[in-house]
Write a protein that binds this DNA or RNA. Structure first.
Lengths: 350, 350
DNA sequence: ATGAAAGCGCTAACAG
DNA sequence: CTGTTAGCGCTTTCAT
């Protein structure tokens, strides 16, 4: 599909005042285009006097460099691609916030791709982005298809996989262990005296699987593998779904006295469902979330959750790319930013 | 700042297998570059036989068109810029979801800019985006600085202002009336028998101002202008802030028996604070939110809110740009997508 | 420190 | 329907 169809361009060509180019600026400043280019990109390469004249000309003509021409000539774009499963999810919202904050101080631009947790879509987006000779690529997760991995390994730009940790990243990596986080949270529930903590999760993806494994491991270590109860759904997560899963859990496993939720939305839904059922949250039923969105601390009762360093991951990913681009080497290329269990009233057994 | 510093390029030039270009494909298919270009962009312009040969060559060489070269030669990029105040806000998350959904069916790419509700940043971003000769520009809000407006009016691409409605848009527009929405919500509270509904809001921006005006207007129409109570803060909105503002309101105006919240986060915070204070939500204190995020219906008690068509606005904005680009004309260029009051238990006076 | 010349890979314009 | 010829605006050599 072309960017515009044949019959387009009905506009009777208004007297478009052509935007100023390097040539215009050079003429205006009485120098050559290359000097203007240099004055703009590496001011140190141009004598002070010339630079001043050029800058003034730039000002007067309102010159703005043409991204496309620059990218073509230098074979390098200022675009850093970011591929995430969802733009509406609060978890990725925080990540993006960190990313956009960090990129503001650099000459780079972010370009977002929405994979919808779909491997084929991710593969396609990776190809499209690589076609733009990006300055860098940031990917959520470590579960790219093998075809995607192959393409990435051939990529001529820094690649950072984020949110998760793996033994063999494509290139660089920053995240935390979902397995360890869930294991810690489950351990906390057990330590607090809950005898049968269950697990609920929606839209099971590889990250969820790793959390679930952490839950199972903690249960097994406590000799409670036989008491593990898991309720999941392939549907997307939401607060409403949290309530639904909680009710389902109560039916399926009435003995469950605590629930580790795969994300905070589910935990909030579980809270509301428990309240509806007249349960005393904390005493009769423990609830623990995952991510620690702002709402968890504000809820009544306040909800325990695993705080994950989303914003920090965004900032770190960008800094790793910038460092690689400017200094050539990043150490260490794999960073575990950890997590922190935020214990609150919802798991106070009292 | 250059995209890469002088001392970069320490890599000893690995035997980079140059990516295939149009010339390569043309040679491989035994034709000219322009035919390949056409076969890719307007298949109808090329005979079936030639097209088949070209497509095969494209396949075999794994050819991917160079975005920069294409943009430079055609003076047109496939980028649609999107400028919003925050990427972490759930409200804009839904908008983006609608936008990304809609763009997937087009040859365009979205490029996000984060204005942080800052006029200067927005102005800068507008300039940067226009410098890329975007295919279109989507802006949240109608309150651009006059300098920004001037730049936009000179833009050679479709521009859509979204989320809000104004008399004189730069170009096209799709949104709803924040004033009318707040007015309706306030009217609902009064109709339900609340005698002194108050208003709480965080990070006052122009959109909030319009909602506040709607609240005041409804109060005035009911002859209750003297009972209007407003508590706001310049700090960002959050669930925790909702609790804070609610407590502040109770001190400042103990007689307030309902509260219209500027957004759902605040409403949720008000809910929790009310519960902490032992108030019966609905009977003793009415709570109404704004936007109707998923959590509102799931809360206990369920929270009344004004449903705003965020996803639909995203889809509509993109379709308006596509239509303008392809058909030349969009009718109507101004679209009011309305809102809907979702009445729930939190405003059941009983 | 500055400049001249030669493309980057693609598409518009104009032939055939 | 197909091809030729020129650039698009910038940056990279390579001189000076």
């Amino acid at each position: 599909m072309p960017l515009m169809p044949d019959r387009a361009a009905p506009s009777p060509a208004p007297p478009v005042l052509k935007r100023a180019t390097l040539v215009d600026v050079a003429a205006h400043a009485g120098t050559s285009t290359i000097s203007v280019s240099r004055a703009l990109r590496r001011p140190a390469m141009v004598s002070e006097g010339l630079r001043a004249r050029i800058m003034q000309a730039v000002q007067e003509l309102g010159y703005v460099s043409d991204t496309a021409a620059s990218a073509l000539a230098s074979r390098r774009s200022g675009v850093i691609g970011v591929l995430i499963p969802s733009v509406a999810d609060a978890v990725f919202g925080d990540l993006l916030d960190g990313l956009y904050d960090a990129v503001a101080a650099t000459p780079y631009t972010l370009q977002l791709g929405n994979t919808r947790s779909d491997a084929a879509t991710e593969e396609r987006l990776i190809r499209i982005h690589l076609g733009q000779r990006p300055a860098g690529l940031i990917l959520a997760g470590i579960d790219q298809s093998s075809a995607a991995r192959a393409a990435l390994e051939r990529a001529e730009c820094p690649v950072v996989q984020i949110m998760d940790l793996t033994e063999n990243p494509v290139d660089m990596q920053v995240g935390f262990s979902h397995h360890a986080a869930a294991r810690t949270a489950t351990g906390h529930l057990l330590a607090r005296g809950y005898h049968a903590p269950a697990f609920i999760g929606a839209r099971i993806d590889p990250r969820t699987e790793r959390r679930l494994a952490g839950y199972r491991e903690a249960m097994a270590e406590a000799g409670l593998a036989h008491r593990a109860r898991v309720v999941t759904t392939p549907k997307p997560s939401s607060v409403g779904m949290g309530s639904t899963l909680f009710r389902r859990l109560r039916q399926y496993a009435p003995d469950a006295d605590a629930v580790l939720c795969n994300d905070d939305d589910l935990a909030l839904g579980a809270l509301f469902a428990a309240q509806r059922a007249g349960l005393s949250v904390g005493r009769e039923i423990g609830i623990c979330g995952f991510n620690d969105l702002d709402v968890m601390a504000a809820a009544f009762p306040a909800l325990t959750s695993v705080r994950t360093p989303r914003r920090e991951i965004g900032a770190a990913a960008l800094s790793m790319i910038a460092t690689r681009l400017w200094d050539g080497d990043v150490a260490p290329p794999i960073r575990d930013l950890g997590f922190k269990l935020m214990v609150r009233a919802s798991t106070e057994r009292v």
